[in-house]
Write a protein that binds this DNA or RNA. Structure first.
Lengths: 259, 259
DNA sequence: GTCACTATGTGCGGTATCGCACATATCCCA
DNA sequence: TGGGATATGTGCGATACCGCACATAGTGAC
């Protein structure tokens, strides 16, 4: 698996690829952009450990970052993911300086890094930037809550579908580079269970995969096999972040009624 | 089961019994307190449905409110609880106006109601009130995340312990008025499973109960039987809300090391 | 092309929890 | 004081998932 990205790509990544950065008012952008630092993330890179002070916040453009809770016995589970629609490091403006989750890059790609204090300053002084950040935070909360319920009630088959859709929304194209082992870690289940669920999907012609490379062939069917959790979260995310690009990837979800 | 509260109690409830109201700066209290309205909640009272616009926020003093996600098939699970340490209705200041969870009174008691706009106004104009509310919100997020992981990895026995401790922290005394049916609904498991788990605890002499009345006899043992999730959440809550009264109820938790 | 490594496939016994059915106990109220 | 409602206890088969062991198949490095 190649985690390395061609150097040429780097120059094509713009701050405004991240939807929060893009949504900030012009003056805020003017003050922040000079301090942004482009970073390349390899898969598996840990950006924060649980309890770490957040010196930087990160704005993904084409990578995916997972927020993971790990327990004493090593068992873990992802509680939410962050991509181009969001920001990693909400504790920077929520006032807590740290969180009890670890942040880990699930999918290689790029992000912009900003000293936490700079964002905090804008958060405190620009009500419009504040609103954008808080609404995003609320959508993150919605995602976490739905994940909790999904963990409790839905089968691994359904959760895998949710997870694939979640990832797909945050990546260009229809390919996801991720091993079943990693997916299992994120869902908090056995690798073998993922193998089995993925096998079923491949058999049905929904996806195709080989050694850490998944291609989604039939997205509508994937949405149908998925539990409602995906649609609920997405709907709430779109409501709270009106410029969210995920609207373009709605697919069948458009037809799902409000809960 | 008596959900009715003696009229005399009502007059003893003060706004400052709620820790957030108590923590607000004097000027903020001066502006808000005249608009507070004391409410009596009976068990099972629904304060918000998922998606409801939040016209009011609620500050519990001696009741417990659960945030519950309900799914299409009727299955549900609690993602967090709110008591005297917090506020119900964070969407009022997060900017979303509504959330996708239902809020339901788990334990009868009192709370103070405030028009959402009043709080929003203070949130926007008083940075100190804002900080208090945001830090509380972050502790709520921590609670949700840990609940999600707990759902995934821990046994019902452990989760029941967590749940009892969570409730105990928000109530005066050592008695919890709640049926096993309701607890099962909150944990998102069968009522029979709760019966079995509660039976074990009673057998061990940790609790005593009869028809919806649970008395905790041996709290230290309860903490020992519990998964780490309770302690992790509590620790984070105390870190983020320094005046939190739960410190007084620490028990064994004081000895648990940082994750 | 070969080799070591990593990713995936498969089988099997164990167990926590479910769903259901029904018995029993306790409480409240007529 | 009894009867209906509600809360709790118990048993049993079904099943989703786990933990482990090991087989197989791509893939990159040399």
């Amino acid at each position: 698996m190649s985690n390395k990205l061609p150097q040429a790509v780097t120059s094509l990544v713009k701050p405004t690829d991240n939807e929060l950065l893009a949504a900030f008012p012009g003056e805020v952008q003017g003050r922040l952009f000079p301090h942004l630092e482009l970073c390349t993330l390899e898969m598996g890179k840990v950006l924060y450990e649980a309890g770490d002070a957040m010196r930087y916040v990160y704005f993904p453009t084409d990578c995916i970052i997972a927020l993971v809770y790990e327990m004493e016995d090593g068992a873990s589970a992802e509680i939410s993911v962050v991509g181009l629609e969001g920001i990693l490091g909400i504790a920077a403006f929520m006032g807590g300086e740290s969180t009890s989750s670890r942040a880990i890059a699930l999918h290689a790609g790029h992000c912009f890094r900003l000293p936490a204090q700079r964002l905090q300053h804008e958060f405190n002084n620009d009500s419009s930037a504040r609103m954008i950040l808080l609404r995003y935070t609320q959508s993150l909360i919605a995602q976490m809550g739905q994940t909790a319920v999904c963990n409790r009630h839905h089968t691994i088959d359904q959760q895998l579908c949710r997870w694939l859709l979640l990832s797909l929304d945050r990546l260009p194209g229809d390919k996801i580079s991720m091993t079943q082992e990693l997916i299992a870690n994120m869902l908090g289940v056995r690798r073998e269970s993922v193998t089995e669920a993925a096998g079923k999907l491949q058999h049905r012609g929904v996806i195709r995969y080989q050694r850490g490379r998944i291609t989604v062939i039939d997205r509508p069917q994937l949405e149908e096999l998925c539990c409602e959790c995906y649609a609920v979260v997405k709907k709430e995310s779109i409501r709270l972040n009106p410029n969210n690009s995920m609207q373009k990837k709605l697919g069948y979800v458009q037809n799902i009624t409000t809960i």
